[in-house]
């Protein structure tokens, strides 16, 4: 007896849809969870030590450092006329008034935009080249200086404001990303004028 002709050619090709419901369940849970965790703003943290008048662990650390090497005691004072840079040896003077005067005295410009952070940064790079081991700086602010001005000054004190290191600042003979760091150990101190 002859075989029946194959039925394969007549079989209808049905498109099989995958069952997406379990994956959908997963998505519905994962997306809200990740959305809750999403940071729409990125926060930056700036660490500082206590004001000089405070008593605590930070001061003890400083005392230890003091014993090792003579300290520069770099002090950046924020005054209403500009920045005054001073060290253990004296005040860095450029002409009359503060070391780095204000960019503008226009009262319509917000206080923190009146200061010349770029010039401060350049000046600090010069100091860092002379004292490559120095890590600390004291920032003193007059009572009416706003928080944003202090934060921006800290930014200018901590790091070189360009993206690429250009000079060997930490004195190890190589130019690498560590040469972007200026004075990361910042002490905030109440200004005494």
């Amino acid at each position: 007896m002859a075989f029946k002709p194959t039925a394969r050619s007549e079989r209808e090709i049905k498109s099989q849809e995958p069952n997406l419901i379990p994956i959908m369940n997963l998505m519905v849970i994962l997306i809200p969870m990740l959305l809750l965790n999403y940071h729409f703003i990125t926060l930056a943290m700036l660490n500082t030590s206590l004001p000089a008048s405070g008593e605590g662990a930070a001061e003890n650390q400083q005392k230890k450092k003091k014993e090792e090497k003579p300290r520069l005691n770099l002090t950046i004072s924020i005054t209403d006329k500009g920045f005054i840079i001073a060290g253990a040896g004296g005040v860095l003077v450029k002409g009359k008034g503060p070391t780095i005067p204000l960019k503008t005295t226009d009262p319509n410009v917000p206080q923190w935009k009146r200061y010349n952070y770029k010039a401060l940064n350049e000046e600090l790079i010069k100091i860092k080249k002379k004292y490559p081991y120095e890590q600390d700086a004291i920032i003193a602010a007059e009572p009416n200086i706003k928080y944003q001005t202090i934060i921006s000054t800290m930014d200018a004190t901590r790091k070189v404001m360009s993206d690429k290191p250009t000079e060997d600042l930490n004195g190890d003979g190589k130019i690498d990303s560590r040469d972007l760091i200026l004075f990361p150990g910042i002490n905030l101190s109440p200004g005494i004028f």
Binding site: I41, M45, S49, G54, A57, A58, M154
Partner: peptide
């Protein structure tokens, strides 16, 4: 003793 300032 360890004081962090928050900024954007």
């Amino acid at each position: 003793a360890k004081i962090y300032h928050t900024a954007i």
